[in-house]
Simulated assay, not measured.
Amino acid sequence: MRWPTLYIALAMIFMPIQAQAQCANPSAPLGAIIFNEDHDVYQGCTTQGWWSFHEYPTHPCTGTTSDPAIGDTCEDGSIYAGLSPDGDVPMYTTPADAPGGATYTWNDGTSNYTYMSMANCMDASPGTAATCQTGEANTAFLVGATGEPDYPFAAAEYCDGLTAHGYSDWYLPAQDELNVLYTNKNMGDLNGTFNETGSIPASYYWSSSEIDITSARAQRFSVGNQGSYGKFGGFAVRCVRR
């Protein structure tokens, strides 16, 4: 076992020297702190011997400290899709679109439009506004907008209500998160799971990013185009979680 040659000895100011316990392998006084290079943890010398302060978190997809490859299926059945631009944290998706190839409207399918009080996502990825990245916050906002004339916001409601692979924290990805799915759509077990055929609405996927009173952002997975589409239109939905 490798141990560093130096450690920090934290003196127990009010404890008599004769009462201090000693730790072995390596030998150190009570209160010493070391870094165990073999196990990647900091450890402190206590009256019970060496104790770890923490361990590096394991990746929920692999059960180890190493990241999976994009497109790897996790033990729970979800698929690692890459890093979400909302914090650069691991993002996972389901292995299929909403059941049966169903399409969902962004709003309630009517022209009773609401100009939502969320910043407009006006440009393609990487979008300038935060709402181009923050799908989890966008979804929570839409689900909570119960007083709006075009509520419910069907695509967001579907993902928010989804329980799959042992989790219930799914959400409708923001534009730039949706673009991560598009960019990685041919990687590993993601390959072949998206609709890439036909004309509108086939191959089009909703994001949770609004652009103006009548339209929201969507992406065509056959070619990658991002654009503005009427909220009443029915598109495919692929939910994600972080």
Rank of each mutant, 00 (worst) to 15 (best):
R2Q: 14
L6A: 15
L6W: 15
M12D: 13
F14Q: 12
M15N: 12
M15P: 02
P16C: 06
A21Y: 07
Q22L: 10
A24D: 15
P26G: 10
P29K: 01
L30Y: 11
I33A: 05
E37S: 11
D38S: 10
H39E: 13
T46M: 06
Q48L: 14
G49A: 08
W50C: 03
H54F: 13
E55S: 15
H59P: 02
S66R: 00
P68K: 04
A69N: 10
D76I: 12
G77P: 05
A81M: 08
G82M: 05
G82T: 07
L83D: 08
P85V: 02
G87E: 09
V89L: 09
T93G: 02
T93N: 00
T93E: 05
D97C: 11
T105Q: 06
N107M: 06
D108C: 07
G109F: 02
G109R: 06
S111Q: 14
Y113N: 04
Y115H: 01
S117T: 07
C121K: 03
A124L: 13
A124T: 14
A124Q: 12
T128V: 10
A129W: 04
E136T: 01
A137Y: 02
T139M: 05
A140Y: 00
A140W: 01
F141M: 08
G144K: 10
A145V: 03
P152V: 09
P152K: 09
E157P: 06
G161H: 11
G161C: 13
G161E: 12
L162Y: 11
H165Y: 14
S168D: 15
W170D: 01
L172R: 04
P173E: 09
Q175K: 14
T183I: 15
N184V: 12
N184G: 12
D189M: 12
D189T: 13
L190V: 08
G192C: 09
G192A: 11
T193C: 03
F194S: 03
E196P: 02
G198M: 13
G198I: 13
I200C: 12
P201C: 15
S203C: 12
Y205E: 06
W206E: 01
S209V: 06
S209H: 03
E210W: 01
I211G: 03
D212A: 10
I213R: 12
T214G: 13
A218T: 05
Q219S: 09
R220V: 05
G224C: 13
G224Y: 11
G233P: 00
G234E: 02
G234L: 09
A236V: 02
